[in-house]
Design a protein around this nucleic acid. Structure first.
Lengths: 243, 243
DNA sequence: CCAATAGTGTCTATCAGACAGTATCCA
DNA sequence: TGGATACTGTCTGATAGACACTATTGG
């Protein structure tokens, strides 16, 4: 039997299959704190709870392509660097039916995050409360910008927790800190982002030294404006496209 | 509409779905080199090529449970610590139909690896050639134990390459080195495993110092037997269950 | 004794934390 | 001038690489 003869006789519908979806963790910085974009579910199941933007994977659509489509259609964001996070496959994670979901993570610069919030997609910012709780990272809870806790749908709290953990792991040796900031930033802003992701403060001079020694930042020559004190120097990320 | 009313009216078969499978990367050490267990495909498609043990995910089966079942049924291994690696979703990765596959990684102690090879499952050991090629890790090629290259089926070369990359990333701060060794081992064996995964040699005294300082190893009091030179001290892993 | 490997001691470079000190802005 | 924050200098401890040194086995 040749390969083409085999294919002719193959029955792809022999067994029941789980449905396959993607869910997007879209992270940003909001008032100096780590935040993610969520949608309030208007329909059953779990109406009223907050969920990650998600959607089903088409039969002729790559997982990455499905994630990009959901980014456009559900979050109204043109493009972002999406990275696969983990695949969640508990049998009862969705009461409608068996749905296996591939979670993706993207980091939005501060302006893009604000723009997505202002767009008509109905997104809200969930501030992530990230206690230090050791290197492994403890549970992550989500709250509205006024501090009120948000109830998350399905297993999306697990997905958020894993996203924060992944972020932490990559913080020291990739550009995740820069990806959340505008093009020009102060070292203080950068340090605040790192502290928010770590969930613990950082030593100032050691942090500045490390950033400069790695050659990742370049001075722009400009300075902050509108401060009531000494304005900080503005830097830019010097190794775009490296990761 | 309540949640139960909604569920009654929901049609889970409205769209075509990709099939969902798991593939297992079962790693071990073979004659001091990093190796993985492969099956030679006897049937179309891609008959004669070498593939990772895999199987479809049942409709009421967790991803982890499917991986454990494949471990038993296709590899003849009772149990191992399986860890999800990545989900591969290219549209044409399997010529039969659209199959999305969740890859899992497990590390087998030297004896379990040899036992699986000797079992009746038809597994072969593919020695992985892992050039250093920078921190990111270059392409990984598989060869038989006599050095002859093995042709891999589907996108399984990509899966192996990612598994090695993941292993490298975890080498310094988890127990991956110990997981591939027998219960009692010499520091030389441990160093060889680390060097095989890194694809680059290690400094002896620095390595020993690091292992001892971390408190991960405990002396057993016993020594190697049957050597033609000074026998090495045998150690055991002192932090089982920590990772 | 030699060959071969086990195991140690020491020098040096790098890097991070701690913390105090100086610089520069606005009011 | 004072308050606030930006930015720097320096000490110290932890860790890794390099490399030579000693120790212990079988023959």
């Amino acid at each position: 039997m040749t390969e083409s003869e085999f294919l002719t006789g193959y029955d792809p519908a022999a067994y029941d299959r789980p449905a396959l979806a993607v869910d997007l963790v879209l992270m940003g910085i909001r008032a100096g704190r780590l935040a993610a974009l969520l949608l309030r579910r208007s329909r059953q199941p779990q109406a009223g709870l907050w969920a990650l933007p998600g959607g089903f994977v088409g039969i002729a659509e790559t997982l990455d392509a499905a994630a990009e489509r959901v980014l456009r259609e559900k979050a109204g964001i043109g493009r972002a660097r999406l990275e696969q996070l983990y695949t969640f496959g508990a049998v009862d994670r969705d009461p409608r039916m068996r749905i296996v979901s591939v979670a993706y993570l993207a980091l939005l610069p501060e302006a893009a995050f604000a723009e997505a919030l202002a767009g008509g997609a109905g997104l809200a910012a969930a501030v992530l409360v990230v206690p230090w709780a050791g290197e492994a990272g403890g549970p992550v809870s989500a709250g509205a910008e006024d501090g009120a806790p948000l109830a998350l749908a399905f297993d999306h709290a697990d997905i958020l927790a894993l996203a924060v953990k992944r972020l932490r792991g990559k913080l020291d040796y990739t550009d995740v800190g820069f990806a959340l900031l505008p093009e020009h930033f102060t070292l203080r802003q950068l340090q605040d982002v790192h502290a928010a992701i770590r969930g613990a403060p950082l030593n100032k001079s050691a942090f500045r030294r490390r950033m400069r020694d790695r050659g990742w930042i370049a001075p722009t020559g400009a300075r902050e404006a509108g401060t009531a004190f000494r304005p900080a120097e503005l830097f830019r990320f010097d190794r775009p496209g490296q990761f």
